[in-house]
């Protein structure tokens, strides 16, 4: 039984990572209709920045996480302005191609700069909490807490703040948003900044809990999209349930079957859900 709870907890931890990634993809797609394939690459690159800050400057991991978040936010805003905005009114295929190209460029630049070997971020303290025989490392707890805080914060921001309402307005009716005086370019930048900030946190934790390698950008974003579609495009609770479901399934799948199929489980469960509910678990758009 303990092994069951351990797997469940591990699943929730990895699910948190997917939630952080998928929420960014979700608001970016929900508001701007951009399939931001470079999102995982932003997470990866920011994770490397956190790695450098820790390994070269001996920084505390919290400082590294914050620097990673700031770095990702800036990169996200730059990508929006420089790469996506020029094609904002062009056919959707243009931003699709640009997104793919950005993913490849960032992953390749990372390989050139950081090499293709895996690295991980060393923490100075390694406390482990025991609940019976179920264990949770200090760092994993931090990921759970960070995810909880960012998700709750984003939810409150979107629901109650003036800017959050403006973001929802743009996602629901861009023209009406312009009519009431919303600067839609500014909203696009904010959305990219917010979404990328979450990716920055995710990237740093990937380095702290597991390992960083340039190709993880592509792997991560595919998982992120799987979560998004599983949960139902644009649904906040759907993204959270979807992330947890994929994280948990993956952990049980690996334990019960084989780790060589690790990346398969997410897509098997995705296909099963879509067969029965084509719009995803909470399908029905609307932030």
């Amino acid at each position: 039984m303990d092994i069951f709870f351990q797997l469940l907890l591990n699943g929730v931890v990895i699910g948190s990572y997917y939630i952080l990634i998928a929420l960014g993809l979700s608001i970016i797609f929900g508001v701007l209709d951009i399939p931001h394939f470079a999102h995982g690459s932003v997470a990866m690159f920011s994770g490397y920045i956190a790695y450098i800050v820790v390994s070269s400057y001996n920084a505390n991991i919290f400082v590294a996480i914050i620097i990673s978040i700031i770095f990702a936010t800036i990169i996200g805003v730059i990508l929006e302005i420089v790469a996506y905005r020029p094609v904002a009114n062009a056919p959707p295929i243009n931003s699709f191609i640009i997104a793919l190209a950005l993913m490849m460029v960032i992953d390749n630049v990372a390989t050139v700069i950081f090499g293709s070997n895996q690295v991980s971020i060393k923490s100075s303290s390694n406390q482990v909490f025991n609940f019976g025989s179920v264990t949770l490392s200090e760092q994993r707890l931090y990921l759970l807490l960070t995810t909880f805080i960012l998700v709750t914060g984003l939810y409150i921001f979107m629901k109650y703040s003036k800017t959050g309402k403006a973001i929802r307005a743009v996602s629901q009716n861009k023209e009406a948003a312009q009519i009431v005086g919303i600067n839609t370019n500014r909203i696009s930048s904010i959305v990219f900044g917010l979404g990328s900030a979450m990716a920055g946190a995710a990237g740093a934790f990937m380095g702290i809990l597991f390992a960083l390698y340039p190709a993880m950008g592509g792997h991560t974003v595919m998982k992120g999209f799987a979560v998004l579609i599983l949960g139902g495009l644009g649904s906040f609770p759907g993204t959270i349930i979807g992330g947890l479901l994929i994280g948990i399934t993956e952990n049980f799948g690996v334990a019960l079957l084989s780790s060589s199929y690790k990346d398969l489980f997410a897509f098997v469960i995705l296909i099963i859900v879509l067969v029965f509910k084509p719009s995803g678990l909470f399908g029905n758009r609307g932030l």
Partner: peptide, 26 residues
């Protein structure tokens, strides 16, 4: 200047009150 656009163009997932608040956005 305010425009009440053709076909209403409401923020359909927002409440009536939120729609009205958006009108005062500027």
């Amino acid at each position: 200047i305010a425009l009440c656009p053709e076909g209403r163009q409401l923020f359909h997932k927002m409440t009536v009150q939120e729609n009205l608040e958006m009108g005062a956005y500027a």
